[in-house]
Computed example of a mutant assay.
Amino acid sequence: MQEIGATISVKGASSSQVKSLQEAVASIGQKLGLNDASTIGGTMNNNAIVLTNDKQMVKLMNALDLPGKSF
């Protein structure tokens, strides 16, 4: 079994994907930092789910119909 961090480093988010995510978030009146956009993009490329304790990020991802769960 491979760790997701290692997989994301291989199939990470492109700069255009990061920009697209940031623009999508801006369209709903919020901001998405570079690191968070890169994380989300990488998980999308790997069919993974973001698991975080950042409830605001999960709420944002759910608003964009992206897979995210809090713990």
Rank of each mutant, 00 (worst) to 15 (best):
M1K: 15
M1V: 14
Q2P: 11
I4P: 01
I4C: 08
I4G: 05
I4E: 04
G5M: 07
G5S: 14
T7H: 09
T7A: 14
I8R: 06
I8M: 06
S9D: 10
S9P: 00
V10L: 13
V10Q: 14
K11S: 13
A13D: 01
S14W: 05
S15P: 02
S15A: 15
S16F: 08
Q17G: 09
Q17F: 03
V18C: 07
V18A: 06
K19P: 01
K19I: 12
S20L: 12
S20I: 06
S20P: 01
L21F: 06
L21Q: 05
L21V: 07
L21H: 01
L21Y: 02
L21M: 09
Q22Y: 05
E23A: 15
E23M: 14
A24E: 13
A24V: 11
A24G: 11
V25N: 01
A26Q: 14
S27I: 08
I28W: 06
I28Y: 05
G29M: 06
K31W: 04
K31T: 12
K31D: 08
K31V: 05
K31Q: 13
L32T: 02
L32W: 00
G33A: 10
G33K: 07
G33P: 02
L34W: 13
L34H: 14
N35C: 13
D36W: 00
D36V: 02
D36Q: 05
A37C: 08
A37W: 00
T39Q: 06
T39P: 00
I40G: 00
G41W: 00
G41F: 00
G41S: 08
G42Q: 02
T43G: 05
M44D: 06
M44E: 11
N45S: 04
N45P: 03
N45T: 07
N46D: 08
N47M: 11
A48H: 10
A48I: 06
A48D: 09
I49T: 15
V50E: 02
V50N: 02
L51W: 08
L51P: 00
T52Q: 08
T52Y: 02
D54M: 04
D54R: 02
D54A: 04
D54N: 07
D54I: 01
K55M: 12
K55E: 12
K55Q: 15
K55I: 11
Q56G: 07
M57Y: 03
V58S: 02
K59D: 03
K59L: 04
L60K: 00
L60F: 02
L60V: 04
L60P: 00
M61Y: 03
M61S: 03
N62F: 03
N62M: 09
A63V: 06
A63D: 10
A63E: 12
L64W: 05
L64R: 06
L64I: 11
L64D: 04
D65V: 12
D65W: 10
L66A: 07
L66W: 04
P67I: 07
K69A: 13
K69P: 00
K69W: 06
S70N: 13
S70F: 06
F71A: 14
F71Y: 15
F71C: 14
F71I: 15
